[in-house]
Computed example of a mutant assay.
Amino acid sequence: MFETINTMLTDALGADAWIYVAGAAGLVLVLMMLPLILTRKKEPMDRIARERKGIILEDDSDNRLSRHGTRNEHLAKYAQYLDPQDEEEMSKTRTMLIRAGYPHKDAVRTLTAAQMLLGLGLLVLGAIYSLVLAADMSMVNKMAYTMIPGVVGYYAPKYWVNKRVAKRQGEIQDGFPDALDLLLVCVEAGQSLDQSIIRMATEIEPSYPALAGEFLMVAQEMKAGKDKPDVLRAMADRCDINDITSFVTVLIQSASFGTSIADALRVYAGEMRDKRVMRAEEKANVLPTKLTVGTMMFCVPPLLIILIGPSLFGIAEALSGTKAF
């Protein structure tokens, strides 16, 4: 096979064919790396350096953490077809998108449009394939090749949103103990709870943007005059994480009974640190079991071939009457 490819390249490009292939491969790699270089993630220390110099860029404004996207006028024309008519379904879908990090008003409409476009597009492609390219198939196979891509295209956006919800919840859960420690430091320094939340959210935003956005939303709603328990319960409902729900309960009960918020945060922050250590230990204990499967699949067969292969070859030659080497 290698000789065939070498002959084809030599005939097409000459004696230096492999040099041209290597250059083309390098050019492709450079082009693939350009988007990563141009969209380099901002380092947290860069933001701190800009703040010390008093430099404010557009990316550092409040728009970066805005919870509302711009309205899509093109989708608004078809709102009656894209918006779910059932209020319960509408509320469930909106809650799912909010938990995924898409709280703007057109999120449900955009999801429905994506489902329809992907479903119809893949359905048409499946129909073209089954009717034109594979016309000799049976009717059952034609129906399968037509319907299955359409179903996959229809449910793929919702599946992606569910995966996004799980990923975002994991990011919030990972950053929550650090956020509690910073919130405790701010409260013990003499700041109010509202000011502490704003400062904490601003500091953790480069590392945990999802969690910072939730706390900034809480701070903005408190500034707008909403009841603090209602705002905290809304955050717990948006995150749908047991740690956040327990944290909200602790703050509400602390405010109701008049106890010190700093003492409550100190105890709860210690519990969250212990839970994070326990989750890390759990993952570490599960790791050997997961590695066993890979070891059995990829290491044991080559080892058996190396150890038993020569013996089997010798036995086969002996049985055939030839001399074993």
Results as ranks from 00 to 15, higher is better:
residue 30 V to N: 01
residue 55 I to M: 13
residue 312 L to I: 15
residue 102 Y to M: 12
residue 195 Q to I: 12
residue 117 L to T: 14
residue 298 F to G: 06
residue 177 P to V: 07
residue 21 V to A: 10
residue 52 R to K: 10
residue 148 I to H: 04
residue 222 M to H: 03
residue 210 A to D: 11
residue 14 G to H: 07
residue 193 L to K: 00
residue 302 P to W: 02
residue 91 S to A: 15
residue 181 D to Y: 00
residue 243 D to K: 00
residue 24 A to D: 08
residue 51 E to F: 04
residue 195 Q to N: 12
residue 52 R to M: 06
residue 84 P to V: 06
residue 227 D to N: 14
residue 209 P to G: 02
residue 44 P to A: 03
residue 237 D to W: 11
residue 152 V to L: 15
residue 305 I to Q: 00
residue 313 F to S: 10
residue 63 N to A: 14
residue 186 C to A: 15
residue 234 A to S: 15
residue 15 A to V: 13
residue 119 G to N: 03
residue 306 I to S: 01
residue 319 L to G: 08
residue 13 L to G: 03
residue 78 Y to L: 12
residue 254 S to W: 01
residue 160 W to E: 10
residue 200 M to N: 02
residue 197 I to M: 06
residue 205 E to V: 05
residue 177 P to N: 10
residue 172 I to Y: 03
residue 203 E to I: 12
residue 268 Y to V: 06
residue 206 P to D: 03
residue 261 I to A: 05
residue 127 A to T: 14
residue 57 L to F: 07
residue 118 L to V: 06
residue 111 L to Y: 02
residue 44 P to S: 02
residue 299 C to F: 14
residue 66 S to L: 13
residue 69 G to Y: 02
residue 236 A to M: 12
residue 297 M to F: 13
residue 262 A to V: 05
residue 112 T to Q: 10
residue 78 Y to A: 11
residue 277 V to C: 04
residue 298 F to C: 08
residue 320 S to N: 13
residue 298 F to H: 09
residue 227 D to K: 12
residue 135 A to L: 11
residue 324 A to C: 03
residue 165 V to I: 14
residue 152 V to P: 01
residue 74 H to I: 14
residue 17 A to K: 01
residue 39 T to Q: 03
residue 297 M to A: 15
residue 285 N to P: 01
residue 305 I to P: 00
residue 167 K to Y: 04
residue 132 V to Y: 05
residue 103 P to G: 12
residue 258 G to E: 09
residue 104 H to F: 04
residue 219 A to Y: 06
residue 187 V to Q: 00
residue 38 L to I: 12
residue 95 T to Q: 13
residue 47 R to F: 04
residue 282 E to C: 02
residue 35 P to N: 04
residue 274 D to R: 02
residue 56 I to E: 08
residue 81 Y to R: 10
residue 317 E to G: 06
residue 92 K to F: 02
residue 111 L to W: 07
residue 273 R to Q: 11
residue 171 E to A: 10
residue 9 L to Q: 02
residue 188 E to Y: 04
residue 66 S to V: 07
residue 138 S to M: 01
residue 67 R to Y: 12
residue 158 K to N: 06
residue 289 T to F: 15
residue 42 K to H: 04
residue 309 G to Y: 02
residue 122 L to E: 07
residue 128 I to T: 11
residue 184 L to I: 05
residue 238 R to W: 10
residue 188 E to T: 13
residue 232 L to T: 12
residue 77 K to C: 08
residue 130 S to G: 09
residue 101 G to W: 07
residue 15 A to N: 09
residue 79 A to Y: 05
residue 215 F to D: 05
residue 248 V to L: 08
residue 161 V to A: 01
residue 4 T to P: 00
residue 176 F to N: 02
residue 234 A to F: 08
residue 67 R to I: 15
residue 312 L to F: 13
residue 156 A to Q: 05
residue 255 A to V: 09
residue 103 P to S: 14
residue 169 Q to N: 05
residue 313 F to R: 09
